[in-house]
Design a protein around this nucleic acid. Structure first.
Length: 542
DNA sequence: TCTTAGACTTGTGAAGAGCACT
DNA sequence: AGTGCTCTTCACAAGTCTAAGA
């Protein structure tokens, strides 16, 4: 049991009341009391803790949902080899459809994708098929491709009622498999479906792209649930690899994927208590770093001049972690002997050092800390109370963008960017024209009213005045929208918003400046940050 | 001390849903 | 009602971190 988990365990212990109330109402008062207690006796972190990394006491669920069995192609849909139709065996046909479905994707133009696919595909073939099908270049999947395209067209063309039926069937499955009961609370599961078979889509120039991801059988799946609970039932004629009752982990089911040998897990949705608490703790650690960071920075700067090479490397590495995070990975991972920059240290060693400087501190905390600190600073700097709602939102997005730039969250400009920009531009021009007309009308009305003021002319002036005002506001709004979009062209805000920005900063900002929280967070985000929305008051500062 | 297993978080493409416009 | 666009949600690959094993 290290200090890190002790620290968290301690936090959890302090918030027993909070835990209990989580699913009902996120009690503000409970939390605030707990915050105060939490800062008191530091020695508690060091105490052996009763919690021992326990994540739950009871856990019951239905197990994962399997993808549907393979549906054979109808007889009139053929694969062609060298111009001749061939009826494939079922396993070979299934793998062929994986490729056929991806025909318009860039992947299928890459040679390593093609080679990996072809090698794996041949393994699924019968001896005769293997004998016959020897070159991918002679394979023609276009007919199969067309079949699936037509099928998805058909689906799109379904009537409202038909779509409704499908939706309800889907809801029923989610209702049944999408939830579990953890410590007496019904919690949403994140990914309750077993990943379907297909071709591996590695990013970049991944050497394994195109390899076949095999269909997972119940016999490969480990179930994790509590002892006395209703154990999930394996599909008919099957059994689970194993059923275990380990309450020191948070997953409900796991298996090993065949392409890279990685573990895959079924875990809870971010809105769950388990994930929410962990998230909250993450930000608490980052806030602690705020108090310590100057010391840590002074120390690593001193290390630059240290006699010992190892310490010196540590100092430089920490600097990179703090300021140019992405490069660290680059330096540390490309461990070609001759160009290994940090040959005396590794991530384990660094994190150990960091953990000594402050309990719970590891490299990635710096990212959270820097991101959240930046958001707080920028919001304080960019927002004033006299701004309109739209101006405040632009400020918020700008603050968020500053963070995204810091974290290097870039994206390719959206394909439709220019077009949608033009659309906005047109709208603005149109609005401007309306405004000009309205202004003219106002002037005339005023003139007439001056000449001989009657009740009628006075009313007319008032009316045109309000029209002008309304149009001006609308125009302003559109212009702000355009600025926002332009500035956001190559920046992705999602990742930082979801993973690095303490939601309490945003919630407090909303409260302070009277901005509805829905303007900042959509439904999913509000669910994920429910803990922060409930506990934060307007004076919170990161 | 180095490597790997295992658990969990983060990043990103793409499908799907919803909405405005015609 | 169909079309095109945007935002949301899902899927899953990739990255980080700790502990255990060699």
């Amino acid at each position: 049991m290290n200090k890190y988990s002790n620290f968290f365990a301690n936090l959890i212990c302090q918030s027993v009341k909070f835990n209990r109330s989580w699913s009902a109402v996120y009690s503000l008062r409970f939390y605030r009391t707990n915050v105060k207690i939490k800062h008191e006796p530091k020695a508690r972190w060091e105490e052996g803790n009763s919690n021992n990394g326990i994540k739950w006491t009871t856990l019951e669920h239905k197990g994962p949902l399997f993808p549907p069995e393979y549906e054979p192609l109808p007889n009139n849909v053929s694969f062609f080899y060298n111009g001749n139709p061939i009826k494939l065996s079922l396993p070979a046909e299934e793998v062929a459809t994986f490729y056929a479905k991806m025909l318009d994707h860039e992947y299928t133009t890459k040679s390593s994708f093609q080679e990996n696919f072809f090698t794996d595909w041949r393994e699924e073939m019968t001896v005769e098929e293997r004998e016959q099908i020897k070159k991918l270049s002679k394979c023609d999947f276009t007919h199969i491709n067309k079949y699936f395209l037509d099928k998805s067209e058909e689906k799109k063309a379904m009537t409202k009622e038909q779509k409704q039926v499908l939706k309800e069937e889907n809801n029923k499955l989610t209702e049944e498999y999408g939830f579990c009961e953890l410590d007496g609370h019904r919690e949403k599961i994140g990914n309750f479906r077993v990943e379907p078979p297909g071709l591996f889509r590695g990013r970049g120039e991944h050497p394994k792209m195109g390899k076949m991801k095999k269909r997972i059988q119940p016999e490969e799946i480990t179930i994790n649930c509590s002892k006395g609970s209703n154990i999930p039932v394996a599909p008919k004629g099957h059994r689970w690899r194993k059923v275990q009752h380990d309450n020191t982990v948070t997953w409900l089911a796991s298996w090993v994927e065949n392409v890279q040998g990685n573990f895959k897990y079924v875990m809870l949705n971010p809105s769950s208590k388990l994930k929410g608490e962990k998230d909250w703790q993450k930000y608490e650690v980052a806030r602690k770093l705020k108090l310590k960071v100057e010391t840590i920075r002074r120390l690593y700067r001193e290390d630059w001049k240290n006699r010992e090479m190892k310490t010196r490397q540590r100092g430089v590495a920490l600097y990179f972690i703090d300021k140019v995070f992405k490069n660290l990975k680059l330096f540390m991972e490309n461990k070609e002997p001759e160009d290994d920059l940090f040959d005396r240290i590794n991530t384990t060693y660094l994190n150990k050092y960091l953990n000594q400087s402050m309990p719970g501190l590891s490299a990635k905390v710096f990212r959270t800390f820097n991101a959240s600190t930046t958001l707080q600073e920028q919001l304080n700097k960019l927002t004033t109370a006299d701004m309109s709602l739209e101006e405040k939102l632009l400020s918020y997005n700008r603050a968020n963008r500053a963070v995204a730039i810091l974290c290097n969250h870039q994206r390719a400009a959206p394909k439709t960017f220019e077009k949608s920009m033009q659309n906005l531009q047109d709208k603005i021009a149109q609005k401007q024209q309306q405004l000009d007309v309205a202004k003219k009308e106002l002037k005339e009305a005023q003139k007439e009213h001056k000449k001989g003021g009657t009740e009628r002319t006075r009313k007319l002036v008032e009316k045109t005045e309000s029209v002008v005002k309304r149009l001006e506001e609308q125009l302003k709004k559109l212009q702000l929208q355009m600025t926002d979009r332009e500035e956001n062209k190559v920046i992705a805000l999602g990742t930082s918003k979801l993973n690095y920005l303490d939601p309490r900063i945003s919630v407090a900002w909303c409260r302070k400046f009277n901005v509805p929280i829905e303007k900042i967070y959509n439904k999913t985000q509000r669910d994920k940050f429910a803990w922060a929305i409930d506990m934060t008051e307007e004076d919170f500062q990161f």
